[in-house]
Simulated assay, not measured.
Amino acid sequence: MLLRILDRLEEIIIAGLMGAATVITFITVVHRFLVSVPALYPYLFGINFGWSQELCIYMFIWMAKFGAAYGVRTGIHVGVDVLINRLNDRWRKGVILFGLAGGALFTAIVGTMGAKFVIELMGTDQVSPDLELPSWLVYACIPLGSYLMCFRFLQVMWAYYWTNELPHHDATHVDDIEVSAKAPISLGEA
């Protein structure tokens, strides 16, 4: 139950940030063009969207950190397994578990270093240039996203150890596309 809530929260954060950044960027671009219309200039010139670029950058950084954790959970995170798939089952399992443990260790270290950095920033009055957000708030995505990604590596590692199943995303599956023996790439056999 708790994992389902975490899964949905992760997806809501990613989709919400992506949607909000898209809307803010769209409004900023429309404003830029409409302000050049002489009749609208007096009304729109006073509206300042100088902060929008900084906000969208922060939103995309947060989205990337949480998106990486989502990628580990769903099996769409980048992985090179051409040689690993050629190993016998015993060696393959060991190498995969070692790789997942390495990912967990790396993200735990990054999360801990990020948490240390954020805690140090909390003691300062440093703010972002345009939005004047506390800098620790901007950088909080580093420990939060890294620890979430570490948890996802451990979650995948635990499941793989007991089931020999890794999460995977079937890139060859597209709704409403006919699969036939004449098109081996659509069956994932090429």
Rank of each mutant, 00 (worst) to 15 (best):
A171D: 14
V23C: 11
L133N: 05
I12Y: 13
T107P: 03
I14L: 13
S186D: 10
R86V: 06
Y160N: 04
Q126H: 10
A68Y: 00
V30S: 01
Y70T: 02
A68S: 00
L40W: 02
I12D: 05
P129Q: 05
G145L: 10
V37P: 02
I57A: 07
S186H: 07
A181E: 13
D170L: 12
V35I: 13
L2W: 12
I27R: 01
V95N: 10
D81Q: 09
P134K: 12
A171V: 10
K65L: 15
R73V: 01
H173L: 14
M1C: 10
Q53P: 02
I76F: 15
P167L: 09
G19M: 03
V78R: 09
G188Q: 04
I5W: 09
A159L: 04
V30Q: 01
T112W: 14
A108S: 14
Y58G: 05
E132S: 11
M59P: 00
L17V: 04
V156W: 02
W158S: 08
S180V: 11
G145K: 08
E165N: 13
M157F: 07
L121Q: 14
T124G: 00
K116D: 13
A69H: 08
G188C: 06
H31C: 02
I109G: 06
G50L: 09
T112Q: 06
A64M: 08
W51S: 12
G99H: 03
L6T: 12
Y70D: 07
G111E: 08
H173I: 05
I13Y: 05
T25C: 09
G94Q: 11
T112H: 08
P167E: 14
C141T: 10
R152Y: 08
G114Q: 04
I61N: 01
L55P: 04
R32M: 10
C150E: 13
N48F: 03
W136I: 04
D176Y: 15
R92Q: 14
W136M: 06
M59A: 06
P129S: 08
T22F: 14
G46E: 02
T124R: 00
G103V: 00
S186A: 14
D125K: 13
T112K: 07
G94H: 11
I13K: 01
T124N: 00
I12A: 12
A115L: 15
R92T: 03
L87Q: 09
I13Q: 03
E132Q: 15
K65I: 11
F106S: 10
Y58T: 02
I27S: 04
A159V: 06
P38R: 08
V95R: 05
Y41C: 06
A64C: 03
F106D: 04
V95C: 09
S146E: 05
V110N: 02
F60L: 12
Y41H: 14
P143D: 10
G79M: 07
M18K: 04
H77M: 08
G102T: 00
H173A: 13
E11M: 13
L137Q: 08
L137G: 12
V127D: 01
P42V: 08
